[in-house]
Amino acid sequence: MTLSPSRRTLLGGLFAATLSPLPLRAQDGWPSRPIRLIVPFGAGTSTDIVARLLVPRMSQSLGQPIVVENRPGAGGVVGSDAVAKSPPDGYTLCLGSIASHSVNMSLMPQMPYDVLRDFTPLSLVTEAPNLLVVSASVPAKTLPEFVEWAKQQRGGVSYASAGNGTSSHLAGELLKMKTGAPLVHVPYKSGAQAVTDVIGGTVPMTIYQVTAVLPFVRDGKLKALATTSAKRLEIAPEVPTAIEQGVAEFDVAAWHGLFAPAKLPAPVRDRIYAALREALFAPELAEQLRNQGLIPVGLTPDAFRPWLEQDIAKWREVVRVSGATAD
Rank of each mutant, 00 (worst) to 15 (best):
F250V: 02
R57T: 14
S46V: 15
A160P: 00
Q152W: 06
V77C: 01
I38W: 01
V68E: 06
R8D: 08
R232G: 09
G96K: 00
Y159S: 08
G42P: 00
V184D: 05
S167Q: 08
L233M: 10
L19N: 07
A274L: 07
V319I: 13
P301R: 09
A260H: 07
S322Q: 08
S97N: 14
V83K: 05
L124V: 03
Q288G: 01
M111V: 08
A194Q: 07
E284Y: 04
G257N: 06
T241N: 05
A84E: 13
S46P: 09
T166F: 13
P112I: 12
M205A: 11
R218N: 09
T211H: 04
P87C: 02
I49E: 10
W30K: 01
S135D: 15
V319M: 09
G323C: 10
L95N: 03
L258N: 01
T18F: 11
S46M: 14
R117S: 12
L62E: 03
V186N: 04
V239P: 04
A279F: 10
E234W: 06
F216R: 11
L308N: 03
R271K: 15
W315K: 11
P112L: 09
A82I: 11
R52A: 09
D219L: 10
V210Q: 15
L37G: 08
R117I: 05
D114P: 03
G79E: 06
E148F: 03
P23Q: 10
A160I: 02
L174M: 11
R33M: 11
M58A: 08
T2F: 01
G172R: 12
L116Y: 01
R232L: 09
S20T: 13
W30T: 03
Q292C: 11
E148P: 01
L131Y: 09
L124R: 12
W30F: 15
V157C: 10
A260S: 14
A171M: 06
L294M: 15
R25I: 11
V268Q: 14
D302C: 00
P109Q: 13
A303R: 02
R25C: 08
S100V: 07
E238K: 01
M108A: 00
T92D: 11
Y113N: 14
T47G: 05
R8M: 06
P5Y: 01
